[in-house]
Design a protein around this nucleic acid. Structure first.
Length: 256
DNA sequence: ATGGCTTGTAGGACAAGA
């Protein structure tokens, strides 16, 4: 079973790339973030025509998440039952016995901003929900744009980012609390080359200079981590014309 | 260097992302 996550920065703009990527990479599950479309305008027919079931939770202009799956989905939940939020950032479904949560964790804007406080409260609420979901589902996966670089290894220039969002200690502490549930960062289950990232700034030729961050993650429960045989960041779509600033991350799990 | 790109909303700048 292959599970993938991709922040597409507008599904309207990126739909052709999503369909192309799925044709090239027929994963079982693809979690999307920043669809930026209301449900009435979600391109459900196009995705189903590509052979995928799809569930989604969107809003106007911002945020928006979706799960695409080769297999039927059950027990779909939109938003966090333990954290009231008008922003559409979470959707969950069960696929072949695997509980999947697709998350678009808030960006936080700046450490002294209200949005940063919202991010930390949002992460507290997520932790409450995760605690219950991990206990209820031995096969559990949390995929998405975390907007957290867990480690200095995940930052192109750690010195330049000290004290900023994505790397601040409270954010990293929230990430470690998820790891302590326990959940495994599937990327770090394997030897990885240095300086591998999942996001690069559009500006200043960030991708060409590899000025990036690893902020998109696939966390796995112990049962799934034990069956995980690979986790790769696919940089190919970031090289396409008019790319998202994020690129897909894919975990392979050998379910028995 | 608080901006550099990109997107959505609008139908002109501006908010937001990370």
């Amino acid at each position: 079973m292959k599970l993938a996550t991709w922040n597409v920065n507008s599904l309207k703009v990126r739909l052709p790339q999503v369909l192309q990527w799925l044709a090239d990479n027929p994963v079982d599950v693809l979690c999307l973030q920043e669809t930026k479309t209301i449900d009435e305008k979600f391109p459900q027919a196009e995705i189903e025509a590509a052979g995928y079931h799809v569930v989604f939770s969107g809003q106007k202009t911002y945020n928006g998440v979706a799960i695409l799956s080769r297999h039927p989905m059950t027990d779909v939940v939109r938003n966090n039952p333990h954290f009231a939020d008008e922003q559409q950032r979470l959707i969950a479904a069960t696929i072949k016995g695997v509980r999947v949560i697709c998350a678009y964790i808030p960006n936080g804007q700046a450490p002294d901003s209200d949005k940063y406080q919202y991010k930390l409260r949002w992460l507290d609420g997520l932790q409450q929900w995760l605690t219950l979901e991990v206990a209820a589902h031995p096969k559990f996966a949390l995929l998405g744009d975390y907007n957290i670089a867990p480690d200095d290894r995940d930052v192109h220039d750690p010195a330049a980012w000290v004290g900023q969002i994505l790397v601040s200690e409270p954010e990293r502490a929230a990430f470690r609390r998820m790891i302590d549930l326990p959940l495994a960062d599937s990327f770090r289950l394997f030897e990885q080359p240095a300086k591998l990232f999942s996001w690069w700034d559009y500006r200043q030729m960030g991708f060409r200079r590899n000025f990036g961050m690893r902020i998109d993650h696939i966390l796995l429960s112990p049962a799934l981590a034990a069956a995980c045989t690979a986790c790769v960041i696919d940089k190919v779509p970031r090289k396409w014309e008019q790319p998202s600033d994020h690129t897909p991350v894919v975990a392979t799990i050998e379910l028995v």
